[in-house]
Design a protein around this nucleic acid. Structure first.
Lengths: 123, 123
DNA sequence: TCCATATTTCAACAACTATTGAAATTCACC
DNA sequence: GGTGAATTTCAATAGTTGTTGAAATATGGA
């Protein structure tokens, strides 16, 4: 995951309603939930919900499929996994206990062995 | 980490310059870097930099100390660790390969065993 | 075809966030 | 005390994002 799409994923989750939506979807697994059900559980109006779901979808964090009149949204685990991978790789200490505390992270790398990527805006 | 402070941390990182700043600080470890050096490396003006550093600090992702005229900023690993913990716990599948892919996550919990927390705004 | 349900789209507006240049603050050194 | 360097603060503005209500689209069933 590139710097920029990480920003997309982070900002998709950096909203109260969207984080709540995502958290509702996670335990539902690939089956997901119809938009209406999400809205009902969280008390979010249909149009606002649609707005937020689009944003999550754009960030690759949820997928959609149609089932009759309903749109079924599901957490896109691979998108989340890419985000976690990016954060672990770029934003966490590499030695011993990194950010996933109870998970020894494999290759311990010494701090300071890596040039930070300069900020580059694509557009 | 609560839902809301997770949103704070996520939105602090959900910006191109701030993510770049954080990534510059991570490999420097607890020694950190003076603000000016960060600005020089990333080509960010002093006042803008100060704005972003304040935001990161507010989110608990960097710490500051003074050294003479310089302000030394360092990545706050514990803040990042809390964020990673929150995401692993709330936004990832719990079974077998969760989001930290190569890290078997200890207690595998079955999907669907957890009521999602309803969205609650404190203010 | 007509109706009801589910969801999205649109446009207007409100709210928030970022950027800029100028001024202020803090500290070290003379 | 005065000067210069590092950093922050401020105010104005621009830009982006979220919210709301109304209208449109898509689907299934009578």
């Amino acid at each position: 995951m590139e710097h920029l799409s990480a920003v997309d994923a982070l900002s998709a989750l950096a909203h109260d309603s969207r984080l709540a939506i995502f958290r509702v979807l996670v335990p539902e697994g690939p089956d997901g939930l119809p938009a209406g059900e999400i809205g009902k559980r969280l008390g979010i109006a249909a149009n606002a919900l649609s707005f937020h779901l689009t944003r999550l979808r754009y960030a690759g964090l949820v997928s959609v499929r149609r089932n009759g009149q309903q749109m079924i949204y599901a957490a896109a685990y691979d998108g989340m996994q890419r985000l976690m991978g990016f954060l672990t790789e770029n934003c966490c200490q590499k030695d011993a206990r990194g950010c996933s505390s109870d998970c020894p992270q494999g290759q311990p790398t010494s701090v300071k062995d890596k040039e930070p990527t300069p900020i580059a805006r694509s557009a």
